[in-house]
Simulated scan of single mutants.
Amino acid sequence: MATLHYGISDDPVHIEDRALAHLKIVIATKLRRNESFTLSWTHPEGDARGRSTIWIHPSIPLRFTFDDPVQPELNMKWVEELMQSANSTGGIQLVDEVLELPGSAAA
């Protein structure tokens, strides 16, 4: 389980390693453009039931910590889905991985 440390909070956000690797790409892209946005997720099993939203801003310290030392191969379809979410009025909604099924590619 990876961890997102945001601001001075002692309460880190726990997100599966693969999901956070993809989310990191989107967050870094938005912050590089000096864009603020929200990030929302459903609490993982084992945490308090519910969902959370945080405001991501370029001036707030942010650190990503991964359990797996090897970065996974990125699924660009999932990155695109997260980026579309980030550009919406609702901000990033951490969604399950978007899979490209065999035979579903446009001809």
Rank of each mutant, 00 (worst) to 15 (best):
M1C: 05
M1W: 03
A2F: 07
A2Y: 08
T3C: 11
L4A: 12
L4W: 03
H5P: 14
H5S: 13
I8N: 13
D11I: 13
P12L: 05
P12G: 07
H14C: 01
H14D: 13
D17E: 07
D17S: 01
R18F: 11
L20M: 08
A21Q: 05
A21F: 04
A21W: 06
H22D: 01
K24F: 00
V26A: 02
I27L: 09
I27G: 01
A28F: 12
T29S: 11
K30Q: 09
K30A: 03
R32F: 13
N34G: 13
E35Q: 07
E35S: 06
E35I: 03
S36P: 13
T38P: 02
T38D: 12
S40A: 12
S40I: 14
E45I: 15
D47M: 13
A48V: 08
A48L: 06
A48N: 14
R49A: 13
R49Q: 14
R49L: 15
G50D: 04
G50E: 01
G50M: 13
R51N: 15
I54D: 01
I56W: 09
I56D: 00
I56E: 00
P61I: 13
P61C: 10
R63W: 14
R63C: 14
R63G: 12
F64D: 07
F64Y: 15
F66P: 09
F66E: 10
D67G: 01
V70F: 15
Q71T: 05
Q71V: 05
Q71D: 08
E73C: 09
L74T: 04
N75G: 04
N75P: 03
M76G: 14
M76E: 15
E81C: 06
E81Y: 07
E81F: 02
L82Q: 10
M83Q: 08
S85N: 00
S85G: 00
S85A: 08
A86E: 13
N87A: 03
N87L: 11
T89I: 11
T89H: 01
T89R: 00
G91N: 04
G91F: 11
I92M: 09
Q93S: 00
Q93G: 02
L94H: 02
D96M: 11
D96L: 06
E97C: 06
E97Q: 03
V98W: 01
L99Q: 07
L99C: 07
E100V: 04
E100W: 05
E100D: 05
L101W: 06
G103R: 04
G103P: 01
S104M: 07
A106M: 10
A107K: 09
A107C: 13
